[in-house]
Design a protein around this nucleic acid. Structure first.
Lengths: 195, 195, 195, 195
DNA sequence: CGGTAAGCGAGACGGTACGTCCCGTCTTCCT
DNA sequence: AGGAAGACGGGACGTACCGTCTCGCTTACCG
């Protein structure tokens, strides 16, 4: 649970209702898309009173963020074979696969919701993006120590240069995601554009 | 006008109402944010019947896309001084400034809306992103011909590697946009991460 | 229409919806009793949006008051045969019949609602009780002029002395209403208790 | 206590909670009116669990009936000075005063509730109206034996003819209660309307 | 140049979902 | 075992907007 602020007594929370709500929200989001999920439909499908939802989540976006965390977690494991290029390719390919799966619409829906709901934005940044970003930065720092990448680089900017294009295509759909794209990004970012 | 399909007689359209609608939508979006703008509020503020809005636009997102195009247009001019690094810095800085201005919320709101509304997604891609992307690619291709960047590079991927991180920070707000960020991106992308 | 205050444009009111709402409310009140009628059920049965109800009536009680006025009107005709005792008997018997009919539950429900809702209380007093009371008082005044009843009597109190016991039994159900009861009341009130 | 049926063990009942509930209900009814009192508000004000209320009373109306009985009791003492007119005036004046006091809203609220709740109707009839009516009838019967009123009269109807107008004005508020009204009623009912 | 059809403002309409309030029940922990 | 606390499934509330649908009323074109 992410958004409780501890207001009601968490110890007395019904596990049954909690699971049923997440499951119902998950099913509905896959069935009709994030934007068309309603709190009433979640409550009805979960066999739960609306108040039980509002008691624990402040908004529909908060529920769906929990659903996503619950179902996917962060794609946060960063391999370390010693070869940073290979490791990045492996992890970026995994992210690409996730972004091409059914969960893609959860991500995009939630990022959309985050533009209007500060709480969702915060939860998204902390629970998903933040968790994924740490290991990436650590892997790049290790590569710096290993001499595989330049020591004068801002690893946060480097991590973004690698991963932001994946989010760009996820959200703007100007071109498809795929292994070729990952290869091109790694080539460009590691070797640079200059001859 | 983007979304009319010419259904009613465009010649008889009231310019007064058209302007009043765009102005009202613009003001309301700045005042309460994209998500809280309603068609009824636009109509009321513009002193216009709701039907007049629905006659010319299919959805709230279409109105706001028109507002954005009307107010900003695409940041599409790409300078060409002969020095591709300097030109990219100039243009990326301009984009950064735009993304830090009040119009940022229009972009993010529209990108959010595009996740659920195919028409908005198409209009956004064609009217804003597409117009901006062409000149960037052309500038990179010229730099390839000038020998300033590698000839074996996919310029579309290269353009994304440069600009996607700006969109990433715009939408996910994990870190602030700024000139330092632009410098870091250009350094990484042109020179590569390798020592 | 009783409770409009003229806020929306009465001229544009949908007669279809108006009738459907009154009919639905009438049916529901007979089916499940005044207290269990809900605005949602009226709207659903009438095939009407809830807002269309709230646009024209401030409360459920106001609807049901209109239903009652619409269905019954005031039992206001007061016969005048020249014999005040006979006329009172005829009219009180008619009221008794009404109070024993299905409409009795409308009256009791509305009087109950009036205890908590000033607007309903006012409407009830003006639209039903007031309309019924006038003719009764006029008949008694005529009887005074005819010398059939004492000239020093407060006709309002006299009318109440005759009719209030009918309401008492209607509401408190301590004893059944009937012709015998009417006879007893007329005897007592005209002739007095004294030997 | 009226509505317990003895289900739980009455001996173990908390006197503290019992009093607190009645007091809280009393205060709330005076503060916001009978119809806006809620079981949750009573429980909260009394510092009591809702279950403790539902254990001992079947409905809100039952609580408020107990409150009224507890606070007022029946206005049941009927004086007997030998002069039935004076005795009626004294007692009807007392009732009038009660109906003009703050307790009036309890009566009206309870009578309203009784229209929809059979249990409340029964309790009201037995605990309040019934207790008050007996002495009145007995006083009238004695007056018959004393020759002060006609022997052929139905005393139940006579009692109602006298008291029902007080309830009528209490509930319908068509005219104010007062000593003049009592005087008029006694004059009419004892002496009759005829010249 | 007068008739007519279009666009327009206004806003009522049938609906859907919202977030809140209470209901009466159930569960937990305390005395 | 009774009581304080309060979460639960449920139902209705009154509100906000949606997108559609009439209404007159200008207003520009066309016969």
């Amino acid at each position: 649970m992410v958004y409780d602020g501890g207001m009601p007594n968490v110890a007395r929370r019904s596990q049954r209702a909690h699971r049923a709500i997440l499951d119902a929200a998950y099913e509905l989001a896959l069935e009709r898309g994030h934007a068309k999920v309603t709190v009433e439909a979640i409550a009805a499908r979960a066999g739960v009173g609306k108040q039980t939802i509002y008691r624990w989540w402040p908004s529909k976006g908060a529920i769906l963020l929990d659903v996503l965390i619950d179902a996917v977690g962060a794609v946060s494991e960063m391999p370390d074979t010693g070869d940073v290029a290979a490791d990045l390719k492996a992890q970026m390919t995994a992210v690409t696969e996730l972004f091409r799966s059914d969960f893609a619409r959860f991500y995009t829906g939630l990022i959309a919701e985050a533009q209007a709901d500060e709480a969702v934005a915060d939860g998204l940044a902390e629970q998903l993006l933040g968790r994924a970003d740490g290991p990436r930065r650590q892997r790049l720092e290790k590569a710096q120590r290993d001499g595989q990448i330049r020591a004068d680089i801002d690893v946060a900017a480097a991590a973004e240069a690698l991963y932001a294009p994946l989010y760009y295509r996820l959200l703007l759909r100007t071109a498809p995601l795929g292994v070729d794209h990952v290869d091109a990004l790694i080539d460009i970012t590691l070797n640079g554009l200059r001859p």
